[in-house]
């Protein structure tokens, strides 16, 4: 007898934690903002970097999904494990960290990833501010799970914060938040008028040498490139991703399904059906491993789901912001 989590078990914790902590996994303000420690932001005249909290949440989501997948694999001798799963689902980040064991090294990598994005913006002469503890969560997971009313509420609250802060332009780091802000906010937030750019659209990675030529470090490793679904198909940034890698001198190889034909990492359903998400990730990792000994992604959801050690082949996965 295998016990499985219901929709309500999953949704309730996300909603509760959004209400209590302002993000659906219940991360503390310190955990959300630690990446910015020691950095100074000049305000950027209305331009702000927008983390959307997704990179910060990736290690927690990964730990949560892995643990639920293990519990749902059963067989369970009693309802005890299901109760543990429900408890973990309903108490948020603190308990996830205790029960599932969040990978602190992964968390530290995610902080570096966000920091690198900020550095690349400066390098591209784009001064920007950061809202710090006031930065709102976009609400994207609620929309993706069909909780439109909740999404609308979160999005409208976020817009109030943006207006209070004088935000005119947001530079996003992940495709999910970008799609939410560009496509769904205008639909759900009356008067939404903020320019939204993904960092790949504006940064210029690589460093000019004395002759002014942009040159990055050529890597010896062969990276298999994994196009995140929304980045390539919805935002059309598959070419920008490659341009960035070429400018930075990063060698990459194309797997069997790439660019607009890419194969999802499975991550978007990791909270609802982590074992299905894991099976999809395993399949994708095999496709990537066929062409490279490491994989490159450009999305925290892909980074978490393909990076789960418990899933599939031994394939180190890096975010593009770790190599640019």
């Amino acid at each position: 007898m295998v016990s499985l989590l219901d929709r309500l078990d999953i949704f309730k914790s996300l909603v509760d934690y959004q209400h209590k902590f302002g993000n659906p996994l219940g991360l503390s303000p310190k955990e959300l903002t630690s990446w910015s420690k020691g950095l100074h932001f000049d305000g950027g005249n209305g331009t702000f970097i927008f983390t959307g909290s997704l990179y910060q949440m990736a290690p927690w989501m990964s730990a949560y999904s892995s643990q639920i997948a293990r519990l749902e694999s059963g067989p369970l001798p009693s309802g005890a494990l299901l109760k543990a799963a429900r408890r973990m689902g309903s108490v948020g980040a603190g308990m996830i960290s205790t029960i599932a064991g969040v990978d602190r090294q992964f968390s530290s990598r995610c902080s570096s990833i966000i920091k690198r994005a900020s550095e690349l913006l400066i390098q591209a002469s784009i001064p920007h501010g950061y809202m710090g503890e006031a930065e709102p969560y976009s609400g994207v997971i609620f929309m993706e799970l069909g909780m439109e009313e909740m999404f609308s509420s979160v999005a409208n609250n976020a817009y109030s914060v943006f207006r209070d802060r004088g935000v005119k332009r947001l530079i996003t780091l992940d495709p999910h938040s970008t799609v939410a802000l560009r496509e769904w906010y205008p639909e759900f937030v009356p008067g939404f008028d903020i320019q939204v750019d993904h960092y790949l659209e504006v940064v210029k990675p690589g460093r000019p040498d004395s002759s002014g030529t942009i040159k990055g470090a050529t890597t010896e490793r062969s990276y298999a490139i994994h196009d995140p679904c929304l980045l390539s198909r919805r935002l059309g940034l598959d070419e920008k991703l490659r341009e960035g890698l070429q400018r930075a001198g990063i060698e990459y190889r194309e797997p069997v399904r790439c660019r607009r034909g890419t194969f999802c990492c499975g991550g978007p359903i990791e909270s609802v059906a982590p074992r299905v998400a894991g099976a999809i990730a395993e399949k994708r990792k095999k496709q990537l491993h066929d062409v490279g000994d490491r994989a490159l992604v450009a999305c925290p959801v892909c980074l978490a789901n393909l990076g789960r050690d418990s899933v599939g082949e031994d394939l180190p996965v890096s975010d593009v912001l770790e190599v640019l």
Binding site: L145, C229, R233, R260, G261, T262, G266, P268, V272, I280
Partner: peptide
């Protein structure tokens, strides 16, 4: 069934 859809748009493409 819809909760198992990834929203990845491979179908749309």
């Amino acid at each position: 069934l819809s909760y198992f859809c990834l929203g990845c748009d491979a179908c749309n493409e």
